[in-house]
Simulated scan of single mutants.
Amino acid sequence: MTLQATLTTDMKTAMKAHDKTQLSVIRLLKAALANEEIKVGHPLTDDEALTVVAREMKQRTDEKAADLAANRPDLAEGVTAQIAVLAHYLPEPLSATELQALVDATVKSVGAQSKADMGKVMGALMPKVKGRADGQTVKELVMEALS
């Protein structure tokens, strides 16, 4: 079942359950996917759809951090509920040990020796962890491995 079909099914379920938070997040996600389809000019592949979901998740995570920094826990609480709904549509995140193993394997396979090879490592690694790890965390692990 594609992500679009899953979202439609979940939207119907949320409507029947009167779950306003889940319904609003699903509608927002469907709109973001539709906008991306218009932008690229063809139906989205699963990888492209996953990229859109990850982008929405990152926006919510940044919004939550900004709300907490502004001492607005009431707003952060609402965003936390949205994050929980979005997390349902992302693949299972990689554990720290799995991510470290992927970084080490990629550094070896690319033959990286110094920080100058960071672009090669990141280019090979990011498609492997798409939607399953935060880019900033991956960058920090690669920097650590190359130093």
Rank of each mutant, 00 (worst) to 15 (best):
A105L: 01
A112W: 02
L7Y: 04
V142E: 06
E63M: 10
A34F: 11
R60Y: 13
H88Q: 15
A81H: 09
E36I: 02
V138G: 03
V53Y: 00
V52F: 08
G131N: 04
N35A: 13
A32G: 01
T106N: 00
A145D: 08
D134I: 01
S114D: 14
A17E: 11
A69Q: 14
L141S: 03
A17P: 02
K120W: 10
K30Q: 14
M126I: 09
A17S: 09
A69S: 14
K12S: 00
E77F: 14
D104N: 13
D134P: 02
A70R: 11
K39P: 01
K128T: 00
K115F: 14
E144L: 12
M11Q: 12
K30R: 11
P127Q: 04
T51Y: 06
L102H: 02
L28H: 10
M143K: 13
D10E: 14
S147D: 14
V79L: 04
T8Y: 09
M15T: 08
G119F: 12
A124S: 09
T80Q: 15
D46G: 06
V85S: 03
L146G: 04
A145K: 09
R72S: 11
A116E: 12
E56N: 06
V121I: 09
Q4T: 12
V110I: 15
P43S: 06
V107E: 00
T106V: 06
T21H: 01
L75D: 15
D117H: 05
D134E: 14
A66M: 11
T61I: 14
G135I: 08
G135A: 13
A34L: 12
A145N: 08
E37Y: 03
S95T: 14
L146M: 08
A31V: 05
L44T: 03
L94N: 01
M122W: 05
D67C: 14
G131K: 04
M122C: 00
G111M: 06
L29C: 04
V79N: 03
I26V: 07
T2Y: 01
A70E: 13
H18S: 12
K58R: 15
M57R: 10
H18V: 11
M15Q: 13
T61N: 10
L94G: 03
Q100D: 13
L28W: 08
A105D: 12
G123R: 02
T61E: 14
R72F: 09
L23R: 05
V79P: 06
G131Y: 04
V107L: 05
T137C: 03
Q136A: 11
L75M: 14
A105Q: 10
V103F: 06
K16M: 09
V85R: 05
L75V: 12
Q136C: 04
L102Y: 03
Q22D: 07
G111L: 06
A84H: 10
V40W: 09
L90E: 01
V53G: 02
K20E: 15
T21D: 09
M57F: 15
P93I: 02
